[in-house]
Amino acid sequence: MNKDLIVVITGANSGIGKKAALTFAKEGYSVVMACRNLEKSKEVFEEILAETKNERVTLMELDVSSFDSIKLFCSHFKKQYEKLDILIHNAAYFNHGSPYQLSADNIELTYATNVFGPYLLTVLLLDHLKRSEDARILHASSNIVKHFFDEKKELALYNLLEEKKKHSVYEMYCNSKMALVILTFKMAEELKKENIMVNAIQINGAKMSKETLQKVTFGWRMIARVQNLFFPPTSYISDSYFHICTSEKLHGVTGQLINDKREIMEPASINPSLKEQIKQLKRSDVYPIYATKRETQQLVWDLCSSLTGRTISGEIKEEKRPSHIL
């Protein structure tokens, strides 16, 4: 039993997050289900309690897109727990057909949920992570980042604070997931001296629930139903979450993107031929070299600290809107 080990899982009320919470609970971990909608999540929470008989499963409110919600969650968490061993950033925003939306902090909702929220949550929980003997952070990315095999493609940041160009949910999701991979690499570098491991998993698809299918437009819903015939169940990915966050084999491994086969991926070659680019799209062992660019990593890092008003050292700084970039 792992009753002394504590894991926080965001978005733990459905899909992969729900299965991950169930897996960790079965293994005896103290599990904090960090969910935006408590009313909706209560039934799932009770299901997990009933199935696992693990009384150390807790449901706490957290909207990852809201900085105030993150701060309140962290305050409550610190009052109940002395440390944190595993932090899984599973929650994500992706809503086909939805209009351009800003978060409570006036940041585009996809980026707020998928990038800046996870950054702030990590920064505010760092002191508790430092108290763990084997602290691990996992970011959930997606194979949608393969669009960045196109050497001309760069992060689209022009719509972060206002809709300056036509909004595309798909494009925003693609960019936010690449930004999350980039953040993983930079954060791993910054936290290595603290012995906190930071990795990301590239999810190549998982079966969508009926509830999730209803969130997408009719055309995409039809495509998703076909994909469901071939995608693995959510438990397949949640088992990978568990492996990456607990395996002795990955002890000390940090700053890596890991595929759903639990293999460490490598950056693609520089200036690949057209033939190589086509092969890359079919492979699951390489990721776009764009994610390794130092200037891009620093750009994402600076955006995170500027927009959240927090540095990795915990310093509180005045939130700035970097208009020269956006």
Rank of each mutant, 00 (worst) to 15 (best):
S30R: 11
S176A: 09
K18N: 10
I107L: 11
L307A: 01
K130A: 11
S65D: 01
G17P: 04
G28Q: 02
H139K: 04
R131K: 15
I237D: 05
C245T: 13
Y100N: 09
E43M: 09
G252R: 06
L274M: 14
K78T: 02
L49P: 01
I137H: 00
E108N: 05
G15E: 08
K186E: 01
G255H: 01
T308K: 01
A104P: 03
T122Q: 01
K317A: 06
Y287I: 07
L281H: 14
S30W: 02
T234S: 12
T52E: 02
C35Q: 01
H147S: 13
Y111G: 00
K210G: 11
M222I: 12
E47L: 06
K130W: 03
A25C: 08
A135E: 09
R262K: 15
G252C: 10
I16L: 09
K279Y: 10
E43Y: 13
I196T: 03
S66T: 06
Y93N: 03
A179P: 00
N204E: 15
C35A: 10
H128N: 12
H96T: 14
H76T: 10
V198R: 01
K275L: 12
A104S: 12
S103V: 00
A92P: 01
K152Q: 13
E263K: 14
K279G: 09
E295D: 14
I88M: 12
N195S: 11
N159I: 05
S41V: 07
T113L: 02
L138P: 00
V145G: 02
N106P: 02
I196L: 04
N199S: 09
D127Q: 11
E133Y: 08
L281Y: 14
D150C: 06
M187F: 00
T122R: 00
L125F: 09
H167I: 04
I237N: 02
Q297T: 00
G97C: 08
S313T: 14
L124I: 03
V44S: 10
I203N: 02
M265V: 06
P233C: 04
C174P: 00
F242V: 06
N54S: 04
K279A: 07
I316R: 13
S103L: 04
V169F: 07
K261H: 13
K193G: 14
K19S: 12
E248S: 15
T254C: 02
L307M: 05
F242S: 06
M222V: 10
A20Y: 09
M187G: 00
L109M: 15
S14G: 04
V7T: 07
T311E: 13
L155A: 01
K71D: 08
A135M: 05
S209I: 05
V8F: 04
S313G: 08
